[in-house]
Design a binder for these strands. Structure first.
Lengths: 103, 103
DNA sequence: AAGATATATAGCTAATAAGTTAAAAGGTTT
DNA sequence: AAACCTTTTAACTTATTAGCTATATATCTT
């Protein structure tokens, strides 16, 4: 289960959002991802496991390599869910229209 | 200007997302918001100014009170922008379909 | 102008997060 | 099994964040 809390915390880091952007183009091995960043490979590995803990990426061992890929459904689902909670398409907007008329 | 970095960092906190959820129903005075949380008023005030710094809420002084309200466009725009970058509706999905066929 | 109320800022402490290097674990290859 | 490569985990340091209390600022009321 991917809790919104974990997802939003994971998305709070610019580095992790950049990783997702790379993975959105194609799955990549951990080392390939690390190459794209100006930090140690263990640091990137930690970011990857945070992303995985949030359910935002999947991981698959391929021999000595580990391939990571995006879990699009989690991202889309979490963001859509929050948007609906906070930018409701009908509920709040109707309320607002009412309030404007009344004022 | 509301940078995506600031927006995502602001959304990374559960408390701040709860504040947004309250504000999504109606604008509220700072004190009214603070009442809803089990923490000091200054702590909530700080969260509010982080949200304002990210462009996620507006602030308006009304006499001795300060009313806060949601800035829906920032939230919707930022999340939609990121979703488009990372869950592109056509680009990546077409690529993926191609890759599946090829494998 | 004095007192009361609402909010923000300052200064501090404690908890969390991000990075480093070194070592371990998993998997190939010869 | 030994050497090698890829990735993760551990131990540690430093920077950031979140909270608190006390104080300042702004506005209203008398």
């Amino acid at each position: 289960m991917s809790s919104p809390d974990k997802v939003f915390e994971a998305l709070g880091s610019t580095t992790r959002r950049r990783i997702l952007a790379y993975l959105s183009e194609a799955p990549l091995a951990a080392g390939e991802i690390a190459k794209r960043f100006d930090m140690s490979q263990p640091a990137v590995s930690k970011h990857l496991s945070i992303l995985e803990g949030a359910g935002l990426v999947w991981r698959e061992r391929k021999g000595q390599f580990v391939t990571y890929g995006m879990e699009r459904a989690t991202l889309a689902g979490t963001l859509a869910g929050f948007l609906q909670e906070v930018c409701p398409p009908s509920r709040a907007l109707k309320k607002e229209a009412k309030a404007r008329k009344g004022s």
